[in-house]
Deep mutational scan, measured.
Amino acid sequence: VTLFVALYDYEARTEDDLSFHKGEKFQILNSSEGDWWEARSLTTGETGYIPSNYAAPV
């Protein structure tokens, strides 16, 4: 399992994006889409796309 942590807060701009807060942890589901990764929040259980430059490996 690849775990990442949010470096900044992010507010979803589309219904496919995932809103999150700094410090929140994610499981990365798909990182082959370039700058946007499909991720599941370990806090909320929700799935959506996150900007890859807002996350770092745990």
Rank of each mutant, 00 (worst) to 15 (best):
F20G: 09
G23A: 02
S32I: 12
W37M: 09
Y8S: 07
S19H: 07
L3W: 11
A39V: 15
L18W: 05
R13F: 08
G45I: 04
V1A: 12
A55T: 12
W37I: 09
A55S: 06
E24R: 00
V5M: 08
K22L: 06
A56M: 10
G48Y: 04
R13Q: 14
Y54Q: 05
D9Q: 04
Y49M: 14
Q27P: 00
L29H: 04
V58Y: 11
T14W: 13
V58M: 11
A12S: 10
W36G: 03
V58P: 05
T44M: 01
H21C: 14
S52R: 12
S32F: 10
T44Y: 02
A55H: 04
D16W: 15
G34S: 13
N53H: 13
D16I: 13
D35I: 10
A55W: 05
G34C: 12
E24S: 04
N30W: 07
G23W: 04
G45A: 04
T43F: 09
D35G: 12
V58F: 10
N30V: 08
G45T: 03
T14Y: 15
Y49F: 13
E24G: 01
S32K: 11
K22R: 10
S31I: 13
H21M: 11
G23C: 08
T44Q: 02
L7G: 02
R40Q: 08
T47G: 03
V5A: 05
I28P: 02
E33W: 10
Y54C: 11
N30D: 13
I28M: 06
F20N: 00
Q27N: 07
E15K: 13
E46V: 10
E46S: 09
E38P: 06
A39K: 00
D35Y: 13
F26E: 00
S32V: 11
A39P: 00
K25H: 13
G45S: 05
D35T: 10
E11I: 13
V5W: 06
V1D: 14
K22M: 08
Y8I: 07
A56Q: 10
S31E: 09
A56R: 08
V58T: 08
E15G: 13
S19R: 04
N53T: 10
A56H: 08
L3R: 05
W36Q: 07
V1Q: 13
A55D: 03
A6H: 01
S19D: 04
R13Y: 08
T14V: 07
Y49N: 08
F20W: 01
G23Y: 05
V1I: 13
L29C: 12
A12F: 02
E24M: 05
A39F: 02
E24V: 03
T43M: 10
A39S: 03
G23N: 05
K22F: 05
S41I: 09
A6G: 04
D16L: 14
S31K: 14
S31M: 15
S19Y: 03
V1F: 14
Y54R: 05
K22Y: 05
A6S: 04
A6D: 02
D16M: 14
E15H: 12
T43L: 13
S32W: 11
I28S: 01
T2M: 13
I28A: 02
L3C: 12
T47Q: 09
F26D: 00
E46K: 15
A56V: 14
P51S: 05
L42C: 14
I50R: 00
D17C: 15
Y49I: 08
E38M: 15
A56P: 03
R13H: 10
F4A: 12
L29A: 05
V1G: 14
T44A: 01
T43Q: 09
L7W: 04
L7H: 03
G48M: 03
Y10S: 02
V58A: 09
N30C: 11
G34F: 09
D35L: 12
A39M: 05
G48F: 05
A56C: 10
S19P: 05
E46L: 15
G23Q: 01
L29S: 06
Y49V: 07
E46T: 08
T47Y: 08
G48T: 01
L29V: 08
S19I: 02
L42F: 06
D9H: 05
P57C: 07
F4Q: 03
D9G: 06
Q27I: 15
F4S: 04
T2V: 13
L7Q: 05
T2D: 13
W37K: 03
G34D: 13
F26C: 07
Y54E: 02
W37Y: 09
T44S: 10
G34K: 12
F20C: 03
G45H: 06
T47H: 08
E38Q: 13
D17M: 13
S32C: 14
V58D: 09
I28D: 01
N30P: 04
L18N: 01
G23P: 00
A6F: 01
D16H: 15
E15T: 12
P57E: 07
S31V: 12
R40W: 06
S41C: 06
L42P: 02
Y10P: 00
G45L: 06
G48I: 03
F26I: 06
L7K: 05
E46W: 08
G23F: 04
K25A: 07
D16R: 15
A12W: 02
G23H: 04
S32E: 10
L42H: 05
L18K: 01
S31P: 12
E24W: 06
L42I: 10
N53A: 13
K25Q: 12
V5G: 01
A55E: 02
T44E: 01
S31G: 10
I50P: 00
S32H: 11
A55P: 03
D17Q: 15
L3A: 07
R13P: 07
Y10G: 00
F20V: 04
Q27R: 08
A56S: 10
Y8D: 07
E33R: 15
N53Y: 12
K22I: 08
E38S: 09
G45E: 04
H21A: 12
F26P: 00
T2N: 12
E46P: 01
N30M: 08
G45N: 08
K25M: 15
Q27E: 15
L3S: 08
S32D: 11
E24N: 05
D16C: 15
R13A: 11
F26M: 07
S41V: 06
G48K: 03
T43G: 06
S52P: 08
A55Y: 04
V1L: 14
E24T: 07
V5L: 07
T14N: 14
L42Y: 06
R40H: 07
T14K: 13
H21F: 12
L7A: 03
L7N: 04
E15Y: 09
T14I: 06
V5K: 04
S19C: 04
D17R: 15
T2Q: 13
R40P: 01
I28Y: 02
T43R: 13
S31C: 15
A12Q: 06
Q27M: 13
K22A: 12
A39C: 04
D17S: 13
T47I: 14
E38H: 14
E24C: 05
T47V: 14
H21L: 12
E33M: 14
L42G: 02
T47P: 01
A12G: 12
E33I: 11
E33N: 15
Y10E: 01
F26H: 00
H21Y: 11
E15S: 13
G48A: 03
E33H: 13
I50A: 00
E38R: 12
G34E: 11
F20K: 00
W37T: 03
A56N: 06
T47E: 08
L18C: 02
D35C: 14
Q27W: 15
V5F: 09
Q27F: 14
P51L: 06
A39T: 03
A6K: 00
A6Q: 00
R40Y: 10
V58S: 07
N30A: 09
T2E: 13
E46C: 14
L29P: 05
S41N: 13
H21P: 06
P57R: 06
N30H: 08
Y49T: 07
I28E: 00
S31Y: 13
E11D: 10
S31D: 12
I50T: 00
G48C: 06
G45C: 09
F20T: 02
E11A: 09
A6Y: 01
T43V: 10
T14Q: 10
Q27C: 14
F20S: 01
G48L: 02
L42W: 06
T44N: 06
Y10V: 01
R40F: 09
N53W: 15
F4Y: 15
D17Y: 14
H21E: 09
E11P: 04
S32R: 11
E15P: 14
